[in-house]
Design a protein around this nucleic acid. Structure first.
Lengths: 221, 221
DNA sequence: CTACTAAGTGTAAAATATACACCTAATGAT
DNA sequence: ATCATTAGGTGTATATTTTACACTTAGTAG
């Protein structure tokens, strides 16, 4: 037992883990196996250990749920309304992460709860204030699409400009002009032509590009 | 005494309160009257009550230290490194606020600690990780200057375009072209010519403008 | 050999951002 | 009252950036 002169809230991290599949933006959800909200879908997350950094806690959750490491992770917002959790006062430091489209093998997680990707366009009823958290994460992602290279963090190590354009079009929800798109992304620092090509389908092979991602994002324009 | 099965961190809010005075960007600091860091300067802040919303806690601190209400306040980031406070694990949800240049009468605060405005360009050694917090707040403010109407929240109810230009020049640290500046700000929604003028100094009187601030900021261009 | 597909490429027009100088309406000193 | 001084107020031409737009290429499949 731990004793304090004043009441202390519990701290959790919740993570909005985005990926792209089937030309849709998707979020990883866990089916809760315990009360409260047993059986409802929720964001992956959990309590922060007393000597654990917040970002480390988020990375730990991310690894536990997806098995992936070394991907883009950013603090989103801290949610702390007094009654957001019916058990006790819980403050959640929310993060969001971007899983590259070639790494979305979900590791069946240890505590037997079900994890699945859900399209953002048709999410089930979520537990707690998780609808707000997802909504804010989507807004942030959409905003960063316009002034940073964040979208590159959805890409595999080598990708074609056509694939990249589809990523932008999926998230923004509008078609883009191919020539203008290419002119623009090729001005980004960190995008490099590998010289290699990929044959794929009944059409001309596409050049493969890399992006030297240092885990950060670059501001553009 | 309060008892928990698992250890819980303490939660504080710290606020970076900005204003502009003497053509400098300033931050409100408190001289700590207790250990740790007794006698050092620190950001205003304090523990969040167990049934108090995070933003309410920040607003309460803001009011206690400055007496002002109804000003721009935004969550900045949550700082949670395990050893950021030598006493116990303390997680700080940092906010930043903008005090209009006509409202910076600091209310001498109740617990006899000294509060003073310090120019951002020459801050004293700060307690805890407060240098990082201030630094991040400055970056955020500088970034928002470019794509939002946040600077308007430094302005009094009625202001001249010359005053507004000086605010922009002070924060950005570069002189701006008067004609281009005026063209630009007059495209912002919410800026209105009152029709009134202000005589002041040995020069032509200036038109007075208002900005209908709903506590929010508008994104531009 | 033909039909089909996505890859790849340039230019002109429109919109936006920048550079730049003089007149105006006050004040204060002579 | 005149003059010097101060910040307020205004428009246009040029450069830069963004947008719109169509055809050729290199492959696959039948």
């Amino acid at each position: 037992m731990y004793h304090y002169d004043y009441p202390h809230p519990a701290i959790t991290t919740d993570i909005v883990i985005f990926t792209l599949a089937e030309n849709e933006l998707k979020v990883l959800l866990i089916e809760r196996s315990n009360e409260p909200y047993k059986g409802r879908w929720a964001l992956p997350g959990g309590f922060v250990d007393i000597d654990e950094d917040l970002e480390s806690a988020a990375l730990r959750e991310l690894k536990e749920e997806t098995g992936v490491t070394g991907i883009y992770l950013e603090q989103l917002y801290t949610f702390g309304k007094p009654n957001r959790d019916p058990r006790e006062r819980v403050i959640s430091v929310a993060y969001y992460a971007l899983v590259p489209i070639d790494k979305l093998h979900i590791k069946p997680d240890s505590d037997a709860s079900k994890a699945e990707w859900h399209a953002c366009s048709s999410l089930p009823d979520l537990a707690f204030d998780h609808p707000q958290i997802v909504s804010l994460a989507r807004d942030r992602l959409a905003a960063k699409m316009d002034y940073s290279t964040i979208a590159l963090h959805f890409m595999p190590d080598k990708f074609t400009l056509g694939e990249l354009q589809r990523v932008y079009e999926t998230i923004k929800g509008t078609p883009l002009d191919k020539r203008n798109f290419r002119k623009r992304v090729l001005t980004f620092n960190g995008i490099n032509d590998t010289g290699e090509k990929r044959r794929d389908g009944k059409h001309r092979p596409a050049r493969l590009y890399t992006f030297n991602t240092t885990g950060t994002i670059e501001f553009i324009k």
